[in-house]
Design a protein around this nucleic acid. Structure first.
Length: 202
DNA sequence: TAGGCCATCTGGTCCT
DNA sequence: AGGACCAGATGGCCTA
């Protein structure tokens, strides 16, 4: 299996060099980050037990990557890096924390939890993308399109069940006559049925 | 270059 | 009290 790759802040150490000396709080912050990320990722997402593999592995951000990024954050009172004219070739703009206030330490921990939560959500989106019909050549669906397509797909599957017809012949019929259902889903047109023509029904 | 999409930070609110 | 959840703000990347 190919390791998920995300070209994210791989030159964090260089960034530190650019920004100057490391804050005394850095060691504590690193330990905090390490602690927060010590919990297994399987606890973060109920979806991680699925065997399904995203066809877009590069879209996933590993927790080790996140660990690396968390090293960017050092203390409390933050400084918008754009104010200091940082290098512009980083994929993400980073903020630095330069003093130590308990609230800011808490805030930093909350940020990490929030990032983990968002990773969990994104992981679920990747799982969902695996279960909605897409063209082989189609680019990665956006989150909103994934949700809308999933809604339309579920509606169509329901209609197939209610019809009692053979799924493939039902889809073929939809291709000929156009698919109409009760929902207002954006994908309930030929987009969906055309995708379903790629589905193996046996 | 504008618009879409996304990641991240943040503060507020709710829940345990 | 602390964590989860949420929505708004912001800025970066990509594409038409």
């Amino acid at each position: 299996m190919e390791e998920p790759f995300f070209d994210f802040d791989q030159d964090a150490s260089a960034d530190f060099a650019f920004w100057g000396q490391i804050d005394p709080n850095f060691q504590f912050q690193s330990q905090l980050d390490t602690f927060l990320f010590d919990c297994p990722s399987s606890q973060l997402s109920p979806w991680s037990s699925f065997a399904c593999q995203s066809i877009f592995p590069d879209a996933q951000l590993s927790f080790s990557d996140l660990d690396g990024q968390s090293l960017q954050l050092e203390g409390s009172a933050e400084v918008d890096s754009s104010l200091l004219d940082p290098p512009q070739d980083h994929k993400h703009r980073h903020r630095r924390l330069v003093s130590s206030h308990p609230y800011k330490v808490q805030r930093h921990a909350a940020n990490i939890r929030e990032r983990k939560r968002m990773l969990s959500i994104n992981s679920a989106f990747d799982e969902l993308r695996c279960h909605v019909p897409t063209f082989p050549y189609e680019k990665r669906l956006s989150k909103i399109d994934t949700l809308r397509l999933a809604i339309a797909y579920i509606a169509l599957l329901r209609d197939i069940l209610l019809s009692g017809c053979d799924p493939k012949s039902y889809v073929d019929q939809c291709m000929k006559n156009g698919y109409k259902n009760q929902t207002n889903a954006i994908w309930n047109t030929s987009d969906l049925t055309a995708r379903l023509s790629w589905v193996k029904w046996d």
